[in-house]
């Protein structure tokens, strides 16, 4: 299997003190991959490194065979990588529809954006009702829908999600994960960072466990879900 995203020997820092150490990680085409770990394990930093938001990176990150390690963040989306950041980061003073259209900025194609809007409204009908509302006035769950929908506007080959269930009500979390499975079923590869380990392992094909900036464990998600170390450390069973 050739990997869609291939990370080899990746280390990175924000300036002082390395936060990622020698990471090797692959995401296959159409794969659903989860990265789990404690709060400060470096999960978000790893995602930021992929998206070009981490100032100092060594090692190699390749997407579809192309080295993207040194690419600035704004050049990454055009390759087909959509990153839904932690904390949602919607544009608060733009309407829901304007937010979604910004997601297609890198495509620069009005017709594809129009089709994307309809597809996102199919995925999240709630957003269609709220299309004219300012995103900053939405509930947390609705903002997360905007953030994921905005990512999907890019017609990505890889969708990166950072803690999409953080701070959401349990019912909304369930719905969000159903939508992620739906997106995955359409053929989009997913790289999910999630503090809700049970849910993450439930959705994913494979998972990596990150601890103190290193890969500690990896394997098929169902095997990890049965692993005693994981059960004790993250599932509390």
């Amino acid at each position: 299997m050739t990997a869609l995203l291939e990370i080899a020997g990746l280390s990175g820092s924000y300036g002082q003190g390395e936060v990622l150490h020698d990471i090797d990680l692959q995401v296959g085409a159409r794969e659903f991959l989860a990265v789990i770990g404690a709060n400060t394990a470096g999960k978000s930093t790893l995602l930021r490194a992929i998206s070009g938001l981490l100032p100092q990176v060594t090692g190699r990150i390749a997407f579809d065979g192309t080295d993207i390690t040194a690419l600035p963040a704004n050049r990454i989306p055009a390759l087909g990588i959509a990153h839904v950041p932690e904390g949602r980061h919607v544009f608060p003073m733009m309407s829901v529809e304007e937010n979604l259209r910004m997601g297609a900025y890198a495509l620069d194609d009005r017709r594809r954006a129009d089709r994307g809007i309809e597809r996102v409204f199919g995925l999240f009908p709630r957003l269609k009702e709220r299309r004219r509302q300012l995103a900053g006035t939405l509930s947390g769950g609705e903002q997360q829908m905007v953030a994921v929908g905005r990512g999907m506007m890019l017609e990505p080959r890889l969708l990166i999600l950072d803690e999409p269930s953080l701070g959401l009500a349990p019912m909304v979390v369930e719905e969000m994960h159903d939508r992620l499975l739906e997106i995955h079923a359409e053929g989009v590869a997913i790289l999910l960072v999630e503090q809700n380990v049970g849910l993450a392992l439930d959705c994913a094909d494979r998972a990596y466990v990150l601890a103190s900036g290193r890969i500690e464990l990896q394997g098929p998600a169902d095997e990890l879900a049965r692993d005693d170390r994981i059960r004790q450390a993250y599932l509390g069973i």
């Binding site: 938001l53 050049r75 959509a82 544009f91 608060p92 900025y105």
Partner: peptide
Amino acid sequence: RTGQAMRATAQDATAARLMGID
């Protein structure tokens, strides 16, 4: 398109970069 990108940058620069805005 450029004007909208400018507003997006004003409202959330990190998100703007993730959209591919320079």
